[in-house]
Nucleic acid binder design. Structure first.
Lengths: 353, 353
DNA sequence: TTGAAAGCGCTAACAA
DNA sequence: TTGTTAGCGCTTTCAA
């Protein structure tokens, strides 16, 4: 029974008493075919349980309707929502997602070597471990590529990024406005462009305001790494009372270490701010103040750019930056001004300066 | 430039001065080809950036090396880890994952209608919104199907499930052993077989021990629904002091409502137990005691069954049940006996009875 | 070990 | 509107 091979257009054609092309047309949107023929074909197809073989079709049409999506670890709380949204939007646009979960470590991932073997319609690279070299190779092989949160100044791959610089600057100003003077930050990995920009701009903004550079500890994007980084920061003689974590995942770690190991109350004794605004940050246990990466807009724009590429209508050198908002919750002290309540009841901070 | 079409075996053959078959053989494991020819082909292939077109290959070999994976929402903390592990194991076994994120609501999902159009090597259905009818249709079309945590007694689809009954019974006994007498539980949706079994067995175990049936509130698998359910439970005149949540996602909700809205300290004032042992349950903010779904074993077994099916070596009526452990953390009171420390330092409870 | 040739299931240009 | 025909890029007998 499981031996049975799927029905082919040929078989349907024979049963319906028409040609193979008629069958093809019956399953093609807007093809010229008479209602009568279509009905005959439909009946035969239903009887045989026929479905067009999309891989065979792609051979001819050069469209697989499959888009590759490469992401790093799904254990970063930001990504599950991103992938889910991507799946929704992509499928609305008629695409399926072929999932590649990369190691997250540097160097060539054997998985990614496989990428080109599938004639994917496009490639969405949301993994910092993917080199722009690989991306260029794909693009030059004719596969449209969009990279997310990964810009390489030496490359002209199409990119969509969150407003890393604006976000980091906003956070620095927010913390200064709340009266903080002793800063620390937990970095990811400098090879990751978003992480690098966030850290650098945060530092520069403080220095630019005449403050000393923040203490830096490397969390390397991992929860455990961030726990250790937080300990390092808080054990210092003149420990910071304001900590910026380059992403929410590490902010969750910092929040908990501060609370449970140092008996510090975030939002009162010290301020912790993240970057992502991952959904669980809104849970009462965290109340994490965080600069948002607006998943919906990001995904919408990424898919839009993919569509444009597919239609050969994308100019070169598109580097889109999507701004977020500083979502104000309870993990950081509040400045006297700049607070705003949005229509949906969420609070944000916008630099009044 | 992005117009360029990918190189074909034909072009490689011409450049290398060999036949198309030689090229094919150069890229086929264990084909009979001389080292000299292979070298010539490799050189030409590298020069042209040639990669075999896997879709074209699949037409002939009837193997796409693509497995479909359908899951419901990724916002349930259990699933990201499951999908990630699945991706790792599948890719080790040479498969890519085509991702289908289903609505989670009943009724035919248009996405799933597409399933059969891709000649997937197999289908892994980890979504309770997928009917076993659809699963049977796929299987009868020759696509091996494995369903996860979704058993339909009227169907003989291959299934892998967590030990829902054993887990629920263990939790009931654990709570009784800790001295609880007033129970409540938060259900998912009865259409979901795992949810139904967990709730029913929990209830039956208590009744079987001569205790009154637990109060039940429907959380419908959503965080907000579980918050509301918890409020309902805790507002009762004789509120339960032991709450079993059918999954961790809802337990996180219960934990936070108890703590922040009712000023109850989980583990002391009341006990909350979940089911999944999702990674963040181990975070200090939660310390959620929970019966584990052992992701690694589950995934390993699922992929194993898929492989057996592919090799036509799978008997009918395989219904595998994979036991977990009751991971003891701080959200529930401890019984006097039955506690065990595992080699990795984690604590579990096993029924001493 | 190699090449020629047939064909996997489909679409699309062309002719009728 | 319909059928015929020629491929899409690959693998795989079959002979050489």
């Amino acid at each position: 029974m499981s031996q049975k091979r799927a029905a082919t257009a040929e078989q349907v054609a024979r049963l319906a008493g028409v040609s193979r092309s008629a069958v093809s047309r019956a399953f093609t949107e807007g093809a010229s075919i008479s209602p009568a023929t279509r009905a005959k074909v439909s009946r035969a197809a239903r009887k045989l349980g026929y479905r067009p073989n999309l891989f065979a079709r792609s051979l001819k049409t050069r469209r697989s309707n499959i888009v590759g999506l490469a992401v790093t670890a799904l254990d970063n709380q930001f990504y599950p929502g991103f992938v889910q949204r991507m799946s929704e939007v992509a499928s609305t646009a008629g695409y399926r997602l072929l999932l590649f979960i990369t190691h997250g470590i540097e160097g060539p991932d054997p998985l990614l070597e496989e990428l080109l073997k599938y004639r994917l319609d496009a490639l969405i690279l949301a993994s910092s471990s993917v080199s722009s070299k690989l991306a260029e190779e794909c693009r030059d092989a004719g596969v449209p590529v969009v990279m997310f949160n990964n810009v390489d100044p030496d490359s002209n791959i199409t990119t969509v990024t969150s407003a890393d610089a604006l976000g980091a600057r906003t956070i620095a100003r927010f913390l200064m406005a709340a009266g903080h003077r002793r800063f620390g930050y937990i970095s990811g990995m400098d090879a990751d462009s978003s992480s690098y920009v966030r850290g650098t701009v945060f530092t520069d903004t403080l220095i630019g305001a005449g403050l000393p550079a923040p203490a830096r500890a490397a969390g390397n994007f991992s929860f455990d790494g961030a726990c250790e980084a937080t300990r390092t920061l808080l054990r210092q003689p003149d420990a910071p009372d304001a900590i910026f974590c380059i992403n929410d995942q590490m902010a969750f770690a910092a929040l908990q270490v501060a609370r449970h190991e140092f008996a510090l109350q975030p939002g009162t004794d010290l301020s912790i701010v993240g970057f992502d605004s991952a959904p669980i940050g809104a849970w009462p246990s965290f109340g994490l103040t965080s600069y948002s990466q607006p998943t919906e807009r990001l995904v919408a724009r990424i898919v839009e750019l993919v569509s444009l590429s597919l239609a050969q209508q994308l100019p070169r050198d598109v580097h889109e930056v999507i701004p977020g908002e500083l979502m104000v919750r309870s993990s950081a002290r509040l400045p006297a001004t700049g607070l705003l309540e949005l229509a949906d009841g969420q609070r944000v901070w916008r630099d009044p300066g």
